[in-house]
């Protein structure tokens, strides 16, 4: 069968059943809502108090970020540097996760109609989730950072040397793993002194400084010029219910 027909067939069958997955996700949200309805007033007041404290801390951080942003803008203008890409955060609920030895995907309830673009970065409160692989009318498929076909540029926290991150099929149950390459031979890490990886804005997909994972062992690569080793991503990566998709504002305009 010709490839365009195969693709059209697959796409139409996908779109046909996508509303049922969305319905499933809505049902899960509804179940969650009724679950919270049964909570006592005392519990709700306590949760409200915790949230108010968190909000206070976040408000301070927002003010700090705003002053840093203005400072960055001033320096960019002073040095005539190209502007950093800006992103709009599109919050999306996960309809379902497909994670096994062979595939590392999540399907979210936002798609073309919400301005999602293919290749856009996906993040959550704990750091990087992955990139948007395919965009459909009302849903999108996210390729997770643990997928072997996922690649991105990262740096060690407090360092500027670009490193190469790739997903890695985990042989153990529920451990999100990746691989780090191109680490200079001068870097020494151990379990007592692990390296914290953060995103780099070099790829143009993610803003710099987002948490990625930790590395606590490195070995000489086959070419002998660099070191490489396993990256351990946060354990809650496979249990997410909501993510934020980074929609580049410049690209959108």
């Amino acid at each position: 069968m010709p490839i365009p027909i195969k693709k059209a067939l697959r796409k139409s069958f996908y779109e046909f059943q996508a509303p049922s997955w969305e319905a499933l996700s809505w049902a899960r949200d509804l179940q969650n809502f009724w679950g919270h309805r049964s909570e006592s007033h005392a519990e709700l007041i306590q949760e409200g108090r915790d949230l108010a404290r968190l909000n206070g801390a976040y408000r301070l951080q927002v003010m700090e970020n705003e002053s840093l942003r203005l400072e960055l803008k001033r320096l960019e203008a002073l040095l005539d540097l190209p502007a950093q890409p800006n992103f709009r955060y599109e919050i999306a609920r996960i309809t379902h996760r497909q994670i096994s030895t062979w595939w590392h995907e999540m399907i979210v309830r936002k798609g073309r109609e919400d301005g999602i673009l293919e290749g856009a970065g996906v993040v959550y409160s704990g750091g990087i989730v992955g990139k948007v692989q395919t965009v459909h009318a009302g849903t999108s498929v996210i390729r997770l950072v643990t997928s072997p076909s996922f690649r991105m540029v990262a740096t060690f926290q407090g360092d500027t040397q670009p490193l190469y991150i790739q997903g890695w099929q985990s042989a153990s149950m529920g451990t999100p793993l990746g691989r780090i390459r191109n680490v200079p031979v001068s870097v020494h890490l151990s379990k007592e002194n692990p390296g914290l990886l953060v995103s780099s804005s070099l790829g143009g997909v993610f803003p710099s400084g987002l948490h990625l994972g930790t590395v606590d062992q490195l070995a000489q690569s086959s070419n002998g010029l660099f070191k490489e080793g396993p990256v351990v991503f946060p354990s809650d990566l496979y249990r997410l219910n909501e993510v934020a998709i980074l929609v580049p504002i410049q690209m959108n305009n």
């Binding site: 059943q17 049922s20 997955w21 499933l24 379902h96 996760r97 497909q98 994670i99 096994s100 030895t101 062979w102 595939w103 985990s170 153990s172 149950m173 529920g174 451990t175 496979y238 249990r239």
Partner: peptide, 21 residues
């Protein structure tokens, strides 16, 4: 088949935390 497929999707969604499909 449609309903079972949906139920299986939901089951796999919950098993994804253990990398099982």
């Amino acid at each position: 088949n449609g309903f079972l497929s949906l139920a299986l999707t939901e089951l796999n969604h919950h098993l994804a935390g253990w990398s099982i499909t």
